[in-house]
C-alpha cells in the first residue's frame, strides 16, 4: 500500500507539472497583452515597457515559466494583474464556499440519484420507471446554466421558497447544490438502477426470498448495500466533474467560490488567477481520482494491487 500511494503521488506531481506547463503555454500564446491592460489606454510606450520589465514579461517563455514554477514551489501564485492582490489569498478566501457547495452537491446527487435508481429498479418497466429514466436522461443532458436559471426562476423568483442568489444560509445553498448535483443524479440513478437489477438477479437474493425475508428487508439489507459498491467509487471522480460545473453554477447563483473567480478572471484575461485556479482544480481532480481508487480498493476486495 505505501508503495502504491507513493507511486500515485509521484504520478500526481507529474500530472500537475504537465497541467501547469500546458496552461502556461496556452496563456502565453493568448493574443491579449496583459501589460497593455494594466497600463491602460493612456499609457506611453515607456510606461508599457517599464511595467513589462517589472513583471518579467519581457523574458523568454522558458524563463518566465521557470520563475513561475520556482515561486509556485514556495507557495507563491503571484499577484492578480487586475485586482493586484495575492492570487493565493484570493483563492483561499473563496475555497471554503466552493468546498461547501461541492459537499452539498454530492449529498444532493446521491439523495436524488439513489432514490430514483432504487425506485426504478423496484418498479422495473412501470411508467414510474420510464418517467424517472427520462428525467435522469434530462439530468445528464441538460446544460447546467439552463437547469440553474430554471430552478432559480421557478423556486426562487416565482414561488419564493429560496433566496434568489447569494451566500450565507442553508436556503442559499439548496438551489446551487441541486443544480450542480442534477447531472450526477442522472448518472447515479441509471447506474443504481442497473446495479440494483444486477444484484436482484443474483442467487443470494433468491435465497433470501426463499428464507421468507420481507421485501423491505431484502431491499435495504441485501440489495442496496451490494448495489452501492460500484457507485461509492465514483464519488471521488465527481469532485473533478464538479470543478467544471462550479464555474457555471457559481456564476448563476452568485456563489462566492473559485468557479466564479475563474469566470471573472477569464473575462478580464487575469492570467495569474486563471493559472492559480486551474492548478487548484487540477489538484482537486487528481486527489479526487486518487480517493476514488483507494475507496474502491476498500469496498471491493476483488480489486487487487499489482
Amino acid at each position: 500500500m505505501p508503495a502504491y500511494l507513493f507511486r500515485r503521488i509521484l504520478e500526481a506531481a507529474l500530472i500537475l507539472l504537465g497541467v501547469s506547463l500546458v496552461t502556461y503555454i496556452l496563456l502565453f500564446l493568448l493574443p491579449a497583452d496583459p501589460v497593455r491592460q494594466i497600463a491602460g489606454r493612456s499609457a506611453t510606450a515607456e510606461t508599457v515597457e517599464s511595467i513589462r520589465r517589472q513583471l518579467g514579461l519581457d523574458l523568454p517563455f522558458y524563463e518566465q515559466y521557470w520563475r513561475y514554477l520556482t515561486s509556485l514551489l514556495q507557495g507563491d501564485l503571484g499577484r492578480s494583474y487586475i485586482q493586484r492582490s495575492e492570487v493565493a489569498e484570493l483563492i483561499a478566501a473563496r475555497l471554503p464556499a466552493s468546498l461547501l457547495l461541492m459537499v452539498a452537491a454530492i449529498c444532493a446527487e446521491l439523495a436524488m440519484g439513489l432514490t430514483m435508481g432504487i425506485v426504478s429498479a423496484v418498479r422495473r418497466n412501470s411508467s414510474t420507471d420510464q418517467s424517472l429514466m427520462v428525467l435522469s436522461f434530462v439530468g445528464v443532458s441538460a446544460p447546467q446554466f439552463v437547469v440553474g436559471i430554471l430552478l432559480l426562476y421557478v423556486f426562487a423568483y416565482q414561488l419564493g421558497w429560496f433566496p434568489i442568489s447569494g451566500y450565507g444560509t442553508f436556503g442559499h445553498l439548496v438551489l446551487p447544490a441541486m443544480t450542480l448535483g442534477f447531472m450526477g443524479a442522472g448518472w447515479y440513478s441509471r447506474m443504481m438502477r442497473s446495479s440494483m437489477l444486477n444484484v436482484l438477479g443474483q442467487d443470494f437474493i433468491r435465497t433470501a426470498r426463499a428464507k421468507g425475508l420481507g421485501k423491505a428487508r431484502i431491499l435495504l439489507r441485501h440489495t442496496v448495500p451490494n448495489a452501492l459498491l460500484p457507485i461509492i467509487a465514483m464519488i471521488g471522480i465527481d469532485i473533478g466533474i464538479f470543478m467544471s460545473g462550479i464555474v457555471v453554477v457559481e456564476s448563476v447563483f452568485g456563489w462566492p467560490g473559485i468557479g466564479q473567480l475563474a469566470w471573472q478572471a477569464i473575462q478580464r484575461v487575469d492570467i495569474p488567477i486563471i493559472m492559480g485556479v486551474t492548478l487548484v482544480a487540477a489538484c482537486a481532480i487528481v486527489i479526487g481520482n486518487l480517493l476514488a481508487d483507494i475507496v474502491a480498493l476498500f469496498v471491493d476486495p476483488r480489486i487487487k494491487l499489482k
Binding site: I149, A156, G160, I164, E250, F253
Partner: peptide
Amino acid sequence: FEVGQEPIVALLRLERGE
C-alpha cells in the same frame, strides 16, 4: 455592494425589493 450577481438575477431581485 453585493458582488457576483448576474445582471438578470439582480433585476429579479430588484423587482422583489431585495
